[in-house]
């Protein structure tokens, strides 16, 4: 099912951006040109389709799902190292140096080189609309309320989860002071104290400002870039840094933000 299709696309693809950010947050950035990804602009009744899921792991590993070319790109320190084919990925998360892929009602464990290490069905009791989360050796599905549901154990391969299905909240709540004058504020908690905060600042139509927040410090993020952009995504790596993907005109900006 999974084929390793390329290695070391190029160490010189993209560029490393500034290493300091506002408000004391440190930002590293790499721009991966659109030639490396598939991108379908929005059409009538269809949002744009492009890379919209990122997973961050240990030792600088990250992975991005490209739904158009149906591949997972693996990055090391923000540089693309290779890619492997995957026909359908709803979410992905690192388990050590391996990746867990959610493919419909199946999870698969694959190496960063695309080697298949087995798969398991998602238990029937786990909700449909979940994000993947790996904590230690436990693979969870996180539901719309931020609660965990046991999917599997990953230790020398995948095994069926035992014990209670319901695991409670995935992350500690991040308290955020809403922006003055904001009509609505949404806080997406990502773990390790990170959150993405969207502030609705205007109406008719909706206008939004987005920022990454940690310990009261914030870093603005672009919204609605590249015309009808696909949603951007973020994940916290094993070192507690936030990795975020932002699609802009010149390519996919992969940012690593640390305190």
């Amino acid at each position: 099912m999974l084929l390793f299709v390329s290695v070391a696309l190029a160490g010189d693809v993209g560029s490393v951006g500034p290493v300091s950010g506002p408000d004391g947050l440190r930002v590293e950035e790499r721009v991966v040109p659109w030639a490396e990804f598939g991108f379908v602009p929005a059409a009538q009744e269809q949002k744009a389709i492009g890379p919209d899921r990122v997973a961050a792991g240990a030792d600088g590993l990250a992975a991005v799902w490209d739904p158009v070319r149906q591949q997972v790109l693996v990055l090391h320190d923000l540089v693309v190292q290779g890619a492997f084919a995957a026909s359908r990925v709803d979410d992905l998360a690192f388990a050590g140096r391996d990746l867990v892929l959610l493919e419909g009602r199946t999870i698969a464990l694959v190496g960063a080189d695309g080697r298949d290490h087995g798969n398991l069905p998602v238990p029937d009791l786990v909700p449909t609309n979940i994000d993947l989360l790996v904590q230690g050796s436990d693979v969870w599905g996180v539901d719309p309320f931020g609660n965990r549901h046991a999917i599997a154990h990953v230790e020398g391969g995948l095994s069926v989860a035992t014990g209670a299905s319901f695991g409670g909240p995935a992350f500690a709540k991040v308290e955020v002071t809403p922006r003055a004058g904001a009509l609505k504020t949404s806080v997406r908690t990502l773990g390790a104290g990170w959150a993405i905060v969207d502030s609705v600042v205007s109406d008719f139509p909706i206008g939004v400002e987005r920022a990454v927040v940690h310990d009261g410090r914030s870093l603005p993020l672009e919204t609605r870039s590249r015309s009808w952009t696909p949603a951007d995504d973020a994940d916290v790596d094993a070192e507690g840094r936030l990795v975020v993907i932002v699609p802009l005109a010149d390519g996919l900006h992969v940012r690593r933000i640390s305190q």
Partner: peptide
């Protein structure tokens, strides 16, 4: 189309609806 199916989307935040 990006998710390939009908779904309950809860993780996108208001920026997903920027300009809507």
């Amino acid at each position: 189309g990006s998710a390939q199916r009908t779904r309950l989307n809860s993780g996108a935040g208001w920026s997903y609806l920027d300009g809507y």
